[in-house]
Write a protein that binds this DNA or RNA. Structure first.
Length: 572
RNA sequence: UGGCCCGUAGUUCAAUCGGCAGAACGCCGGCCUUUGGAGCCGGAUGUUGCAGGUUCGAUCCCUGCCGGGCCAGCCA
């Protein structure tokens, strides 16, 4: 009972999609294949990242889909690194990707590499050559591109298209042996240069690369392309359902062509495409993300403003919330953009039930309790989490000099402003009722100090005479406050759809996406917060303690703020 | 310009193989409150892209149009 609303529920596939029906087109298809498909009830998926960058929230959707389906159908999911391009790939990304997947809470059935299959792929290529279905082309990249034709123009057959099998075999062997320079020759599938689908116009299967591969070293001088490696790797591993994003839709006929020509059995993998994830106010393109990092617009791949898993982790996004979000949005074949607010609501939902409450004043205003007994030491007891009885309570020191949030006081409050004002009484959270009796200002009219009286009878927050106050505000005892740094984050891009109008997405980069506040007043208990832990600063939001720097907190997400909404409406 | 995919509340998705168009987030109103949070109650979201056709009946099937996405790397 009392199960958190955002906890993943592996028993119920219905958590896997939005709306009422409880399933999506992919799960429906898989269920049908399990019932009477060629796989004998077996389900195997795979997540095939290229180890050339860090994972982002978009990958999390694919991860949740593939691993989630494997769990739901009692199947398996392989983590396969698509390491077919030695020029861009690196083992440090392999480690980071594995780390991120583990953080999300998934465990691959097996970890594999496309490079494990280079030998097998080579032998299959020879088989296609022998069948007259592949040939070595001497044209250079530019010529191949030009001769591929256009959407309305048929392609032109390569002059090398009709080489004999023996010549192709010989040339291919010499490509492999490293006898040719990069770009001098490629192996192409022999399909149809007049096909409507450009992917079928004799696609390249192998190119020559003399680079060092991070796993196979210098063993190979030829490397398979995605189109050649991917489907065959799926088949070798026994994938039943190969789920990929929409842009591979036009490659599906080729995926199937290779399997058919190789004579693979009926239980061969089938590819199904789904829409990749887009989020408002951010970008998901690896290239743009890399540019943010290289141009110094963010601090690195793990900057808390980045949509990378590492960034979200530092920001304080819990993996449970990311999984719940992924399950909620489900999958479809329509390309769209989800509102970042939806993700944030899942983050709040999780932290609301898990995060300890603490008090912190970000913009301090001094309050002197004029009737506080000289030298009296007092300690209040505060609830750690009203949503979780087992979280207990903590002691919070109180005193005659306090800090409250500057925004919690107004000399001349407008309607619906319920907080402190001259002559008005409010409750200090877990403390006493105080009434503002006087305001001290400096020569510029700036408020420097509030004088207040407190009612000793209201210890704990209730008045014996039953009188009510409209607001409860947070505070920190000045004598006990710990100074800290709080980093506030806003949208990385001001535009909800950066670059959608054809301009550079970076043009709408938010110049104030980060605000660093030093000299914040924190209650003493915050000094004991473990690195990385997320707490709630009462009335402000959720904040993640920095992994390295003590007493530095990153705002994960704010609480929903009704007063801010009222103000916004007034301004409009 | 050719091929393929796709058009349902603001957004993202549903609608049990043709039967009264729903959910979540957001929004609006109210209640409650020792977080103006959370929670609770209620409400509006709409010519299902457009126009025809088939049918007793179309979001669903057919045709055309319009709009969006993807495809002419030896990237994935």
């Amino acid at each position: 009972m009392n199960e958190p609303a955002d906890s993943p529920n592996p028993d119920s596939p219905s958590t896997g999609s939005a709306g009422g029906s409880g399933t999506d087109f992919i799960r429906e298809k898989i269920a049908a294949d399990v019932a009477d498909g060629p796989y004998g009830g077996r389900v195997q998926t795979r997540f095939p990242p290229e180890p050339n960058g860090f994972l982002h929230i978009g990958h999390a959707k694919a991860i949740a889909l593939n691993f989630g389906i494997a769990e739901e159908f009692d199947g398996t999911c392989v983590l396969r690194f698509d390491d077919t391009n030695p020029d861009t790939e690196d083992s440090r990304f392999v480690d980071a990707i594995q780390d991120d997947i583990a953080w999300l809470g998934y465990r691959p059935s097996t970890i594999a590499y496309a490079s494990d299959y280079f030998g097998r792929l080579h032998d299959w290529a020879v088989q296609l050559i022998e069948a007259g279905l592949a040939y070595v082309d001497d044209q250079d990249a530019e010529t191949i591109s030009a001769n591929r034709g256009g959407f309305t123009e048929p392609g032109v057959d390569s002059p090398w298209r009709d080489r004999t099998v023996d010549e192709n075999l010989d040339l291919f062997a010499r490509m492999r042996a490293g006898e040719f320079a990069e770009g001098e020759k490629v192996l192409r599938a022999r399909i149809d240069m007049n096909h409507d689908n450009m992917a079928m116009r004799d696609p390249v299967m192998y190119r020559i690369r003399h680079s060092h591969h991070f796993r196979t070293g210098d063993d190979w001088k030829i490397y398979p392309t995605y189109d050649w490696a991917h489907g065959q790797s799926d088949a070798i591993e026994g994938t039943t359902h190969s789920l990929c994003t929409l842009e591979f839709d036009t490659h599906r006929p080729l995926y199937e062509w290779f399997h058919e020509q190789l004579g693979l059995a009926e239980d061969r993998p089938r590819q199904t495409e789904f829409a990749r994830l887009n989020l408002t106010h951010t970008v998901m393109s690896k290239r743009k993300l890399a540019q943010l990092v290289s141009d110094g617009l963010v601090d690195g791949w793990d900057d808390p403003r980045m949509p990378t898993l590492r960034g979200l982790r530092r920001r304080g996004y819990p993996p449970e919330a990311i999984r719940a979000f992924a399950a909620h949005i489900g999958v479809a074949r329509v390309n769209g953009t989800h509102e970042i607010e939806l993700l944030e609501s899942f983050v709040r939902t999780h932290h609301n039930t898990h995060a300890l409450r603490r008090m912190a004043v970000l913009d301090p205003l001094e309050v002197v309790i004029t009737n506080w007994p000289e030298g009296l030491a007092d300690t209040r007891q505060a609830v750690n989490n009203p949503e979780d009885d087992t979280a207990g309570t903590r002691d919070v020191p109180f005193g005659g000099r306090l800090f409250i949030e500057r925004a919690d006081f107004m000399v001349d409050p407008p309607k619906k402003f319920y907080r402190l004002a001259p002559g008005r009484e409010v409750r200090l959270r877990a403390g006493y009722f105080i009434t503002c009796t006087d305001v001290e200002t400096d020569d510029d009219g700036e408020i420097v100090r509030l004088l207040c009286s407190y009612d000793p009878e209201t210890a704990g927050g209730q008045a014996p005479d039953g009188r009510k106050v409209k607001a409860t505000i947070h505070w920190v005892s000045a004598a006990h406050a710990v100074d800290g740094t709080v980093v506030l984050y806003d949208r990385l891009f001001t535009d909800s759809h950066p670059g959608a109008d054809g301009t550079d997405p970076l043009a709408s980069l938010n110049p104030s996406s980060r605000e660093i506040r030093t000299g914040c007043k924190l209650e003493p208990a915050l000094a004991d917060t473990p690195p990385g832990e997320v707490v709630q600063f009462e009335r402000l939001g959720y904040f993640a303690h920095d992994l390295d720097e003590p007493l530095r907190f990153h705002r994960t997400v704010g609480l929903r703020d009704e007063w801010a909404n009222i103000q916004k409406r007034r301004d409009l």
